[in-house]
Amino acid sequence: MITFEQVTKRYGERLALDSVSWHMDEGECVVIHGSNGSGKTSILRLITHEVRPSSGSITVGTFRGGRLSRAQRALLRRTLGVVYEDFRLLPDRTVFENVALAVRIMGRVTNEEVVPRVLYALQEVGLQQKQTAFPSELAAGEKQRAAIARAIVNRPAVVLADEPTGALEKRTAADVLALLQKIHREGSALLIVTTNPEVAEKMNSRVLRLDDGRLIGDTGPNGAPAESA
């Protein structure tokens, strides 16, 4: 599903990732935990090909290599569902329209195809009552649910969540994590990146620990070394 082989990433003089190797299987749930500046977000940006590795090789599904054309990058991103800490919802569109945009981006789809898919995704995250609301009318937890609906509406093979509870209060954060667990149980692979050790604990899944750009730990749900490490 996702494989990093000896991946190093430098931003000018700064070393963000230092020869990192790891692999994630289809349907697996992985939490990448580390402090700020440990290289977590670089991993996500490398997976989505927002940046290219300085050295090493990355495979995401059938996309292999460090240099993809813009068209290939677009195709790669359609196989992923991404959830951001700051939600990244378009403020001039309703919840329904924000989710529908992800469907339309997939290509030739009719309105008849878009509507049921969006409604199903909104039902999955419990936001069907808020489909006509604009992001500014939603609470933080609802915004994140809308962002999750947008991430899962095309049934991606893997959902990437970048600090999904970072902007949420404790109780709402727990609800969002429960929702992500539900999505994982339904078959999607899930990769969560977080600075919060409680997230890793609550997800009860494999945890990769990053420190200063180096992978310093890879443990299974029970804390034992992971099999695929």
Binding site: E50, R77, R78, L80, V82, L90
Partner: peptide
């Protein structure tokens, strides 16, 4: 720019 960035992250082609 935000709109362009979000669309790009969602996998929109340049043409879209």
């Amino acid at each position: 720019r935000l709109q362009v960035e979000i669309m790009s992250r969602l996998g929109a082609t340049d043409g879209f």
